[in-house]
């Protein structure tokens, strides 16, 4: 069942403070977070979060397309290593 709209998106309280602090400092640093359940808000766009997956921090550069998703969606806790074959990577 979907979350009621009147509640607004869920975000852990400390995350907002950390994001504000980093944005104010203007430094290019990774914001380490453990809160995989928090929703990505528009004010997080452009920041890089290190989302803990139980073992390490996965860097997540937030873009507009990610708003509304949860942080945990971008930091899988199980990693599958396939074959390279003809797969490509683009340097963004």
């Amino acid at each position: 069942m979907a979350r009621s709209v009147w509640k607004g998106p869920f975000v852990d309280g400390y995350l907002l403070k950390k994001a504000d602090k980093t944005r104010a400092s203007g430094r290019n640093e990774v914001i380490k977070i453990w809160t995989r359940r928090s929703t990505i808000l528009p004010q997080f766009v452009g920041l890089t979060f290190g989302v803990y997956n139980g073992q390490k921090f996965v860097p997540v550069l937030v873009t507009e397309n990610m708003v509304g998703h949860k942080f945990g969606e971008f930091s899988p806790s199980r990693t599958f290593y396939g074959h390279a074959a003809d797969k490509k990577a683009k340097r963004g």
Partner: peptide, 26 residues
């Protein structure tokens, strides 16, 4: 390894001891 978990490509870099770190491929 090279991964894309939905937030862009990233490199998984292993040090001599086998510990790994993720670095965004930007």
């Amino acid at each position: 390894a090279v991964h894309d978990f939905g937030a862009g490509d990233m490199l998984e870099i292993a040090d001599a001891a086998g510990r790994t770190k993720f670095v965004p491929f930007t």
